[in-house]
Design a protein around this nucleic acid. Structure first.
Lengths: 147, 147
DNA sequence: CTATTTGCAAATAATTTGCAGCTGG
DNA sequence: CCAGCTGCAAATTATTTGCAAATAG
């Protein structure tokens, strides 16, 4: 699914010129499931693409966000991270390690959507609703698991 | 409720030395309901307290957060804002204006708490759970209202 | 061709820090 | 007193920007 033709297609459909850098960056982000920062993404591709610059990574990621190819999430500390998962989901954030875990539950999702449908919010166009769980891992070397 | 004796008491109970600066800063934040940035807080007190420095505002706010006297919330853009409301509540964020509105609904709160009680999360101590609604105001000069 | 995009280095903006002097308990 | 706080200026960090060269369509 994430072959180069597909990525190329994603870019084209978004109305972005298909450049070598964009293919590399989008391919990289889509393969990372740990909500990487721009720097992390840069580091994981620089060995194979030494000439690709950090500034381009920053610019390109924001371009992707603007075109809804990926999402941006900011940590409670205020750093930007990127998320290739477009479907609605919540985040569990560990202040100790900075790790972000996804969670999704259909039931909870429905509850919240229903809630905001009943309750009417005036004067705002909602783009998304996120549930963020903040805490600290007990064992920082292990992952957080649900259920 | 927010007289100086009370603020003094909040600081003492938190184990912080009662200084002139802390009284001023805490008093100011507790009076602001628009989730101000450190800079905003600094600006709203500098006319009356010209010698109080911005660095002290930054340090002091983080000290308050560490002692749970106030909360810190970061915008999707990654800026830090401070929130004097300690009770559990959600945020509606406008990307156009940067305004943050609070919302709270007992029912929704219960739903979410119940959900995470049923579902067990392993390896993390939850500090708080927030629902964040992101969107763009239709009329930026007007407020967002609920129901 | 030509409007975009890239890479580089320099600029910015928010926040933090080092440290000497001040101050509250 | 003296540990902890403050103010100042300088440092840091993430991110952005200006601009000339490269490139996609």
């Amino acid at each position: 699914m994430k072959d180069i033709a597909n990525i190329r297609n994603l870019l084209t459909s978004a109305g972005l010129k298909v450049t070598h850098q964009r293919l590399v960056i989008l391919g990289t982000v889509l393969d990372m499931d740990n909500h990487p920062s721009a720097e992390k993404i840069y580091n994981s591709l620089r060995s194979n693409h030494p000439s690709l610059s950090l500034a381009t990574v920053y610019k390109t990621l924001e371009a992707f966000v603007a075109k809804d190819l990926i999402k941006r999430v900011s940590t409670p500390e205020g750093y930007k991270r990127y998320d290739p998962k477009l479907s609605n989901h919540g985040h569990i954030y560990c202040a100790k390690t900075g790790d972000i875990y996804d969670f999704y539950d259909e039931e909870l999702d429905t509850l919240i959507i229903d809630f905001f449908r009943k309750k009417k919010i005036n004067n705002i166009v909602i783009k998304n609703i996120t549930v963020q769980v903040n805490g600290e891992k007990v064992d920082p070397s292990k992952d957080v698991t649900l259920k």
